[in-house]
């Protein structure tokens, strides 16, 4: 599986919850930019745990081949 993981960094509160919630180490924390990033999107299993856990609801996980959610 693989995913297209999008972060709306304008909404992100830098709480790092998404890094904790990702149980397979796909999401990492960029110390310099102080923001999350998808380090290993090719290993994402689309559990949506990060989306669910994010207090700011600023993450969207899509299957790799999908760039935007259908309306």
């Amino acid at each position: 599986m693989a995913a297209n993981i999008k972060f709306d960094l304008d909404l992100c509160s830098s709480c790092k919850t998404c890094v904790d919630a990702c149980f397979i180490d796909v999401i990492r924390w960029d110390d310099k930019k102080e923001q999350p990033f998808a380090a290993y999107p090719e290993d994402c299993v689309l559990c949506l745990g990060c989306e669910e856990a994010c207090p700011a609801q600023c993450i969207e996980v899509l299957p790799a081949a999908v760039s935007a959610a259908p309306q």
Binding site: V19, D20, A21, C22, F23, I24, D25, G49, A53
Partner: peptide, 9 residues
């Protein structure tokens, strides 16, 4: 845990 303790399993 290999994941974050409290979020694993």
């Amino acid at each position: 845990d290999k994941a974050t303790v409290g979020w694993a399993g």
